[in-house]
Design a protein around this nucleic acid. Sequence first.
DNA 1: TACGGTAGCTCG
DNA 2: GTACGAGCTACCGTAC
Length: 571
Amino acid sequence: METTKNIYSIKSNTKDLIKYTKDSKILYVDIETTGLSPYEDYIRLIQVKNPKKEYAFILDLYKVSYDKKIFDAFKDKKLVFHNAKFDLSFLSQKIDKRFLDLEIEDTMLIGKTFEPSKKHSLKEMVKNHLDIEMDKSQQKADWSQEKLNKKQLIYAAFDVIYLQKLFEKLKETYNFEKNLVYKIEKNFIPVLIKIEQKGIKIDFDKAIEFLDDVRKEYEETENYLIKKYRINPRSPHDVANALIKEGIKLPRTKKGNYSTSEDVLKFIDHEIAKKVIKIRKLKNSIDLLESYIKSCDENFRIHSTFNSWKTVSGRMSSENPNIQNVPTNKRFRQLFTADEGNVLLGADYPQIELRIAAVYTNDKTMIDALKNNIDLHKLIVSKATGKPYKEINKEERKLGKPVNFGLLYGMSANTLRGYAKTIYGISMSKEDALKFKKIYKETYKGINEWQDKTIRKIKKNGFIETSTLAGRKAVAKRYTDALNYPIQGTGADLIKLACIYFDYNCKKHKVNAQIVNIIHDEIIVEVEENQKDAAKDLLKKSMEKAAKRFLKDIPCPVDVVIGKNWEEVKD
DNA sequence: TACGGTAGCTCG
DNA sequence: GTACGAGCTACCGTAC
């Protein structure tokens, strides 16, 4: 049983903190805040553990204005956190930007890298690795009251004391310093924080105007349907009943309800179906616009939260609001812009997942095609329709995309038939669909072997552990997942690395550019007009260097486009 | 009334 | 036998 005596020293004085940290190059750090938002909430405590001392130091920031000198206690030191993104967001936002330049380690990331299927809270990891049960009853205590009680302070101190013990144990257990996935994720943290803090500029007036237009159209459509058919057009139940009343037959959903999905409605030649499709899209647009307008800060910038490891595959996600699912239509993309005197740069990786699949499966035909600059989406449309490759236009190419991805990730012949029907208007027999799959398999032998091997393994063991080219692990129980995770995950490894390179290069060449959005294979950057060419060059080089690291000799040329808004910078 | 699942929309 | 990965909102049945 540990004694609580000499567990901590609590002060409000920065000088005492500097004195405490002075003799160590490594520090274990945690903070307690009044809430989860680095914009709206405050840091109450900063807890620090110097491994050369027995006790933890607690800096109490109650009613103390944030002192820039606090940073001096951490300068030139390596900081160890549990979930560094959270602590560094606050420390860099409230105290000193230079916190983002420090070398760090993150015990939670080590857990996520080496034990992906376990839980990664400090409590769970301390239990698993040290066999100690931490008392977390104070975690959600009130950290804004003037006088903190002894229980709270002991809790705060133990967080960094156990953090040190956990880190030292993990260091014995895993060789994380050499692990590429850990390195990428660790170095990506400050890059991600900067993206969130900068935010992306919205053309507020245009957004309001757009919302107004959409609302009017929505209300007109809604009133029409309510008056004429007495239905709530947002209710699938009402819509289904109304259609049945009109003598239309509807398929069932998995759960047995009548389906009114767009896939069903678009084949129904009736005004209810057409207007319901329309009103759903309008409502969706209204929701998106309202979320952007609501999220703007006083400078009309949106600060979305980006997650780097929330998905199984390793892909990023964006929330509050999600700015990775902005509709591709002009009026939406034009809303995302740059400050006065700045421009945006846009760059995406062409057909990146197919390039990754080619190298991952060592498919000679696909590699050869890519080396000869053949567009694989055009090629698949050409093979499906019999139309010569050179005559495939942009619209038709767009349709090839889902088929290519579908077949890559194990799409069935039946689903392929559905695609042929809905997007090409071709009625494909089951035999034709199977024949087409066969042609695909014979063309791409490497892909085929990989798919067969994966299916066999899953059938035998019930699951499979997949790995990206950087070594990011995931467990799949369905073969379709097992085909997807390593490819999609490698795409994530690659773009994260590109962002790290770009951020580093901008610092090195003193280019004042900032990434403002990442959309899986696309990077959006904001930069001062007079540095746009330098930034463009660095972005291109950074993305191509990251691609080369994983794709080896498969070329991956990146085009960077300059413009005033997102619409203008698409390729 | 609160919650969770489903359906349906958006994106790569 | 199954293309994959996300977030957000409204509806709707169930539990309290």
